[in-house]
Every structure is written in C-alpha cells, then in structure tokens.
Amino acid sequence: MSNVFAIIIGAAVLTFLIRYLPLSILHERRLPMLVEKFLSYTPLGVLAALATQSVFWKEGHFYSGLPNFYLLGAIVSVALGVATRKLGIVVIGGIGTVALATFIARLLV
C-alpha cells in the first residue's frame, strides 16, 4: 500500500477543513437570535442521536434482539445522570451495568 501516505494526508486536510472552517467563518460574527437559539439546541440533538444509534443500530442493522444490554446500560446511565449529573459516575455506572449483565448472561449459558 504505497498510497497510504497520500490517503492519510488527504484525510487529514479534509478533516481539518471540516472542523476549522465553520469555527473560523462564524467567529466574531453575531448570528440572528433564532440561529443562535437553534445552535444552542444542536449539541443535544447530536448527542441524543448518537447515543440512540449506538443502542439500537449495530453493524448496519436495527438491533431488536433481546436482551439488549446497551439499552439496560442506557437506562441506568440516564437515571444516574438525572440523579448526580456527574459524567464520571454516568460512564462508570453504565459500563458497570453492561459488564454485570454480560457476566450474568454468560454464567447462565
């Protein structure tokens, strides 16, 4: 694979432009109120959509299989998030739940 370096450089330039240009163009420019409000909501939308996809979408297919340990982990994570609002607790609690469920499931098989 002699062209791997070309691919890496191409991907690097492309990714940098994707990340830098919106920041640079909108820097110091006041946006209309409605747009600012819209942009204050988009982070939530991105995070919620990503989380939902990783629970229900696996390898290009809707994951309807039960038991869905990720769903269980997500429910616990949301509950911990509401109760504590601490990122570390949410992450550790979520992974712990999925690990425990996986461990128990393997004992039963």
Partner: peptide
C-alpha cells in the same frame, strides 16, 4: 461511547428542561 454521550447531555438538559427534552427525543 453512548454512556459518555448520555452523561454529556445532562447539563444541557438541565439548563433548558422542556425544549431540551423535546430536542433530545426528536433527534433520537
């Protein structure tokens, strides 16, 4: 990954509880 996304949404949800919930559910 999903756990950290969930954890990150919490401060945003608290600052805008009603609209935030609608945004999160619709996007999900």
């Amino acid at each position: 990954a999903p756990a950290s996304y969930i954890g990150l949404t919490m401060p945003l949800l608290v600052s805008k509880p009603k609209a935030g919930l609608v945004v999160a559910l619709t996007a999900s």
